[in-house]
Design a protein around this nucleic acid. Structure first.
Lengths: 251, 251
DNA sequence: AAGTGGTCTAGACCACCTT
DNA sequence: AGGTGGTCTAGACCACTTA
């Protein structure tokens, strides 16, 4: 996992990295926005060096782009890059499902079924706040079962990237029913230990998610280009004022 | 001073990053070795900050591990990590081959055939220095054709990691003949536009390479532990890699 | 308590604009 | 030239380890 969600530990450059990552994912800074050292220095109330080191690490995670003598900006997501990431995700999800069909324990399978039941119930009762946790939990079990940290790292990274464009938007009702159906089919394939089928379903499942996400990407781009002032009050100077207390390690 | 042939990259932290990466891959620093700021400061004749930033970036690339208030070390490669990386490579190579069988142009296919001919000839004439370039060129065409930078990034990273353990060791003669045969089979599948077959062959090809590499890993570990006469007493000490200090390039 | 070595601050420096 | 803003140096600071 990339971040133990514990912004109270370790060196300052790590805390800055964690909080900055949160801010980027949360949309405080949007793709393509310039990240000036001076602004960040003030926002997080800390010197330039920890900021720079945090940026270097975030660059490694693919969230930030740095150009020598030019500075850093939130990574610009063009459609090509998005497609490539999603394509990789399809491949990896398929692999994970095949591996689970082969080697997944019945205990974990039961866990998946429990999560699915919970998911179905949440949808039936319209408890939208549970959708994302349930969906994540479902895929998490399959991912963790494979025991491949490289795959985990990629998917974590991919989900961070997609979240920067998805924002807090939820799922459409139609898509939600598809998701549930595909999850059910996947469970059936797991129970039958049908490796090829599981791989195929997972790949299609991921492909549907990709299609959905690319459509959302287009919608967001459309909205960005037509509205000068966006709803969140985001253009212009760095919004300051909430600032989690980073000045802990200082005399 | 930084080494002579540094690319024209502007910032010092980038030059340090590039040279340090070279040094790690070349085995100047071996896996598990501590990378002290002071030593690097002297070696590269530059201040602490560019060094630290270079290390942060290399951490992002997976070559270096950093612990707050502890410092950095060359990433330790245990067998589990190696297996996980190689497993991912199998998945991705298979995907690339499937994609090439679907969408690869005949021009690129011709290019691959030319490279293969060259490879066969090099083997016939025992020109060992051409093996790795030919092999890389073969896979590069397939990789580039897919136009997926995420996949490229992963494979590049994986090859850097494996090279830190493989060193300059070449291929055994038997394995070499297998490689050629598998490449030929892959070309046949491409010509037939047989997507499933191409994917299968590429996956097996990668799996053979994995087996080979893991065997080499074991051989290297074995060699180091017998040379080193450890009675197994010390546990928890710094798990030093293999490769005693051959580097005498202090200035 | 002293040592080692990572981390951070302040300010100088310099690359790339804009006028 | 003057401005903006990224980069680097020097040294202080502090966390962790030894005795």
């Amino acid at each position: 996992m990339l971040s133990a969600n514990d912004p109270g530990t370790g060196a300052n450059y790590q805390r800055v990295r964690d909080v900055l990552r949160q801010d980027i994912i949360a949309g405080v800074f949007h793709p393509g926005e310039r990240l000036k050292i001076a602004a960040l220095t003030e926002r997080y109330d800390i010197g330039a060096n920890p900021i720079r080191e945090a940026l270097q690490q975030l660059q490694g995670e693919g969230l930030v782009e740095m150009v020598p003598n030019k500075g850093a900006m939130v990574r610009m997501l063009d459609e090509a890059m998005l497609r490539e990431t999603l394509e990789m995700r399809e491949v990896i999800e398929s692999f994970l499902a095949r591996k689970f069909a082969q080697t997944g324990s019945y205990k974990l399978l039961d866990e998946i079924k429990t999560i699915q039941t919970e998911f179905e119930q949440a949808v039936a009762e319209n408890r939208t706040e549970k959708y994302t946790p349930c969906n994540s939990a479902f895929h998490d079990v399959i991912m963790k079962a494979a025991g491949n940290r490289e795959a985990e790292a990629f998917l974590t990274r991919a989900s961070m990237l997609t979240r920067t464009i998805r924002g807090v938007i939820g799922y459409g009702h139609q898509r939600l029913r598809e998701i549930l159906a595909e999850h059910r089919a996947l469970i059936v394939a797991f129970e039958a230990r049908d490796v090829a089928l599981a791989g195929q379903i997972a790949e299609e499942h991921a492909r549907h998610a990709s299609t959905d996400l690319i459509a959302q990407y287009h919608a967001v781009m459309e909205a960005r280009s037509t509205t000068r002032q966006s709803s969140g009050g985001r253009r212009g100077a760095v919004p300051k004022g909430w600032s989690p207390d980073l000045s802990r390690n200082r005399s």
